[in-house]
């Protein structure tokens, strides 16, 4: 277990190192931030001063080494635009995105699993087939369109829900959260639903397929032959077997929900990281882009680690160090 964890951590470090190289070269190719940051009528001396201040006069490999040196000390550079540490900038937006992502994933589990169970138990029923048909819409409709439609209907036409921003926030553990106030929750309903739709469909279909597959297996028949109640057979025997693939997908989806909340955050003007990264890309604010992408890598590595740990809880046949 400990050796496994150590090996995973070393792997994670290498993944991140590779990531920094790719990102560094990548952002260097997109364009020159100086063109955007300096007013067109600035003179040459001013230009050179700014370039030197950002360290952009040095060759790329030197910039990279300088960056790595900073990373080791926990410094991912300062934003060109805000002149603030990139990490603090992202940290400020982090809670907004996280609470949105958590709510979206929770929704996809709370709604997706029961619907999937039902559709798996009654595959030929009218409702079961309706659920399956609906799930196709769930992941084929584009997020931005659904988001706009939600705003159209619930904010513009009906006026039930607010369409932009986080609403009133309350402090908890020194961080501002929307889900703690009524107004904040109302603001969260639409963006969270919008973000969750595709995942609901995914979890639902996965659960249904699992139920269909497992119900036909011998162990289910044996469990029934033992005289167990139908609910115990479904919720203990079948459920525990289905959860293995579902947990994997939920884990990975959580990562992508955080990373790609960009669209939803833009549509609903949700002040999260997604909006920050889009703005940063527009002005080529390199340190923020790099820091953001590195944070996403850390997030994915952590999620994968947690999913692997969950496996050992769910499936006794999985041993992390490959030994019995």
């Amino acid at each position: 277990m400990t050796t496994w964890l150590l090996r995973r951590l070393v792997q994670a470090v290498f993944v991140m190192l590779a990531m920094t190289v790719i990102v560094f070269v990548g952002v260097n190719v997109i364009g020159d931030p100086v063109e955007i940051l300096i007013s067109p009528d600035a003179d040459q001396a001013e230009r050179l001063r700014v370039i030197a201040a950002f360290g952009l006069d040095k060759p790329l490999w030197e910039q990279y080494l300088h960056f790595l040196g900073g990373v080791v000390q926990g410094d991912l550079g300062k934003s060109f635009v805000f002149n603030e540490p990139a990490l603090r900038l992202i940290g400020g937006r982090f809670p907004a995105t996280m609470e949105l992502a958590f709510t979206a994933v929770a929704l996809s589990v709370i709604v997706g699993i029961p619907l999937g169970l039902y559709a798996g138990l009654k595959p030929d029923g009218l409702l079961g087939r309706a659920i399956m048909a609906g799930s196709i819409l769930g992941f084929s409709l584009p997020t931005f369109w659904v988001g706009l439609m939600l705003i159209m209907v619930f904010a513009v036409q009906l006026g039930w829900l607010p369409s932009t921003g986080r609403g009133t926030t309350a402090e908890f553990l020194g961080i501002q959260w929307s889900f703690l106030t009524r107004d904040g929750l109302a603001h969260m309903v639409m963006p969270a639903t919008n973000l969750a739709l595709g995942n609901i469909a995914l979890v639902l279909r996965l659960t249904r397929a699992g139920v269909r597959e497992n119900l036909g297996l011998e162990y289910v028949k044996f469990a029934r032959a033992k005289g167990l109640s139908p609910s115990r057979v479904l919720f203990v025997h079948v459920m525990k077997n289905i959860m293995i693939p579902v947990v994997t997908v939920i884990g990975l989806e959580f990562g992508s929900v955080v990373a790609f909340a960009v669209v939803t955050e833009s549509v609903f003007a949700w002040p999260g990281m997604g909006k920050l990264i889009i703005d940063s890309i527009n002005v080529l604010d390199r340190p923020v882009i790099v820091a953001y992408l590195m944070m996403i890598v850390v997030l994915f590595v952590t999620i994968n680690l947690l999913v692997d740990l969950m496996y050992t809880v769910l499936d006794p046949r999985v041993r992390l160090d490959g030994r019995e």
């Binding site: 011998e218 044996f222 029934r224 032959a225 033992k226 005289g227 167990l228 525990k240 077997n241």
Partner: peptide, 22 residues
């Protein structure tokens, strides 16, 4: 259901498949 596993029990063919693996 109350009779099954109680007064009438069943043993299946493939022991690899009858017990729940998890």
């Amino acid at each position: 259901r109350r009779l099954r596993g109680n007064r009438i029990a069943m043993i299946f063919q493939d022991p690899m498949m009858t017990l729940n693996p998890v």
